[in-house]
Design a protein around this nucleic acid. Structure first.
Lengths: 155, 155
DNA sequence: GTTTGTGCAAATTTTTTGCATTACA
DNA sequence: TGTAATGCAAAAAATTTGCACAAAC
């Protein structure tokens, strides 16, 4: 992650914590920085192990508590890819995108289509609903499976 | 549910079980019929209680096992509305639709937009992916919350 | 008669909660 | 110094697994 992004997200978190009268603990900034040093999706257990390996002393409870703050601050997005395991991803400066999930190897691919925002806007008007965020997942057979009849199985 | 639908889904399940060399147990048909007698979304615990109340003797393990078969047979759809709790819905003859979830009262609303299928088709071509199903959720503030500043809170 | 499927209970996995202690303000 | 936040461990919630027994085929 670039130095600018690092500074920007730390600044956003600082302002969020001040606005909501939450304390600026070292754990909160350590968690944010760990997340922004990581590419791709992660779950709480990953994050816990990543931080543990770097000799941070942080508990799972603190990660669960603070991921809520980061979600609310718009710094992290939460996904559910069909399993009962919440996956997260950094949100700042990340172009809006959606996901394709292979039923077989469980790999996650990304795509982007501007029409989703149009559908969102129209649905907001039609149903008098304010949308804060969305999640669009396509589930199916990935390219490798389709072309070679097989892909990496996880199970 | 109509008598026709009842017969049709029983027929689909029968054919699926025969094709996959699975046994036609009474539990499998009881579960299917219970699901098709129910309106709206449900989770495994709901289904378990619904069947228990009707004096069916069925275990949660059997429900978890068989919901997989019903999903694979295309008779049931699975949803994840942001919580770590799988929600299900009957699929046969149900018009494709997607969901709006209120962050506050957690109510689920439905909508329908043909452009999603267009996005799906284009994404399949572009990324050489076969889509079997999709899930589009808009999260936000429902009409009641937006207009009256409050809606039913679940928490 | 075989063998798959079932019920039950125990185990696992993921998340939440309670409480004593730490550290921010 | 007062109180929110933390770490840890125990509890809760959702799902999966192991095994003896039942019932399809």
């Amino acid at each position: 992650m670039s130095e600018e992004t690092k500074e920007a997200v730390n600044q956003i978190l600082t302002e969020y914590l001040e606005k909501h009268k939450h304390r600026k603990t070292s754990e909160r900034f350590a968690i944010l920085n760990e997340i922004y040093s990581h590419e791709g999706h992660f779950d709480i257990e990953n994050l816990y192990l990543m931080m543990k390996n770097k000799r941070y002393r942080v508990s799972r409870a603190t990660l669960y508590n603070n991921i809520e703050i980061l979600l609310d601050a718009g710094l992290v997005i939460k996904h559910q890819f069909g399993k009962n395991l919440a996956q997260f991803e950094k949100a700042y400066k990340y172009k809006q995108h959606d996901h394709l999930i292979c039923n077989d190897c469980e790999k996650v691919f990304e795509f982007c289509d501007p029409r989703i925002m149009q559908i969102q806007k129209m649905t907001e008007d039609l149903l008098k609903f304010d949308v804060t965020h969305h999640s669009l997942n396509f589930f199916g057979r990935c390219k490798a499976l389709k072309e070679n009849g097989k892909c990496e199985h996880k199970k």
